[in-house]
Write a protein that binds this DNA or RNA. Structure first.
Lengths: 253, 253
DNA sequence: CAGTGGTCTAGACCACGTC
DNA sequence: ACGTGGTCTAGACCACTGC
């Protein structure tokens, strides 16, 4: 019963074979701290150093191992049982769900000064643009968006039709403001009267509340706040071990 | 204003330099669909094919590019403005927050048959083990866990002290049941009387509700249900472009 | 100092798509 | 047949860590 894992698919490549051996070794606790070095692997498996190296590097990018220059390769204590939830742009959610997507612009105007909390999060208190939108699936509101943008960088957005174009594309493609960093937080909340009315649900219903600040080169460009109906589940399925990018995923029911 | 991105740090390595040039090229729309091939890059930059290749491969693992054998390397339309939230095991949350962590076992016993919904999710209706635990930060309940495990695979768990050891470690290390796949769903809900009482909050308070099924080799091993107080924010900060693994992250307030 | 990982080279053969 | 990416080799030099 000990670690007879189904790595039985015959090794299609030497690199893969080495990886599998190392993974089995870690599972079987043959390697508990340090893994063989590149040269050792190359010798014992009879391959070139570059091949042995590739196996180790891939294990590192998969999060199973940590490599420290001058010291060696060490097994990383996995904190698995962990998971992540992907938040997709509304338009993609709709595609995944195969429902009709539409956006309504509730408000679009410039502000002399942003609200204090926004000013703090953007570290900026000059002119800003406020955009409030409602994202609907099959005509029913599911996501309420309240967005502030730096007026000095995004002024032209005032003249765009935000019901048909993506704000993100405007920023990246037209305004040359690539996203370089994102900060965000999600909480579960109950909706107050005003917000519930916008989403057309009874007061007190649960919702996800997301705050997000997006940066271009450490300059905050836009702050957005979402209220998403709580029944709309974020659903994910993935293989742990931090293998590669988070899979793009669905909104389930 | 055109794509004078701060990639001005002088190229510490040839590979990095090539990557930067390619990224600039994509930003500046010089490459809108196809990127130069490995051989072309090697020739124009005067490096070996392996070096040019490394640059392209890294761009692929960073999610910026797609490589198709026999065809070429293509820029991937990013669907950014996307994000993901990491759900950590309770113990790590507490460490991140630097608060005292404790677990109380509310119930631990075997069931003749699992509840119908669990039976369906596990595709199994034999004997199961039910474990209910309450995870506390600084003595205050924050996460309520209801877990079902396959009795035939995890029987020995009945004799473990689940207030001190991690169920995940038991499965992986002692029972040789590695996690190979996870399915999960999160919703925002309001707490009913029973659940609110367990978490010691008023009825109707918002909470995250997570359902998770964990597999070993396509065999469902355990189903877990969490209720997490809604004020406990999941907070993340990351660079988009799907660079590498999701960063482990905090619980913020 | 010896050993580690990080980078790079100039070849090679293969599997796959396109024409 | 040709070009693409995927794999691999047998060297090389470097930067860093440990003793």
């Amino acid at each position: 019963m000990t670690s007879q894992e189904p790595l039985r698919t015959l090794p299609t490549s030497k690199c893969l074979y080495i990886k599998q051996q190392l993974i089995q070794g870690m599972r079987a606790k043959r390697f508990t701290d340090r893994l063989p070095s590149e040269n050792q692997l190359a010798a014992t498996f009879g391959v070139s150093r570059m091949t042995a190296r590739k196996a180790l590097v891939e294990l590192e990018t998969e999060g199973l191992v940590e490599r420290i220059r001058g010291r060696g390769t060490y097994v990383k204590k996995s904190d698995p049982a962990m998971g992540y939830f992907v938040v997709q742009p509304s338009r993609r959610h709709a595609e995944t769900l195969d429902v009709a997507y539409s956006t309504r612009v509730l408000e679009l105007r410039s502000l002399e000064k942003p609200p204090p909390m926004v000013a703090k999060r953007m570290a900026y208190s000059g002119m800003t643009i406020l955009a409030r939108r409602l994202h609907c699936f099959d005509g029913k509101p599911v996501r309420y968006e309240i967005r502030h943008l730096r007026g000095d960088l995004c002024g032209s957005i005032l003249f765009e039709d935000l019901e048909t174009v993506s704000i993100h594309e405007l920023l990246v493609d037209r305004l040359d403001l690539p996203l370089t960093r994102v900060w965000q937080r999600i909480t579960a909340e109950t909706l107050d009267a005003r917000t519930a009315a916008v989403l057309e649900v009874p007061v007190g219903r649960p919702a996800f509340h997301i705050l997000r600040t997006t940066y271009t080169h450490d300059t905050p460009v836009t702050c957005v706040e979402y209220f998403i109906r709580g029944e709309l589940a974020f659903e994910d399925s993935f293989a742990p071990g931090r293998t590669g990018p988070p899979p793009g995923l669905g909104f389930g029911h």
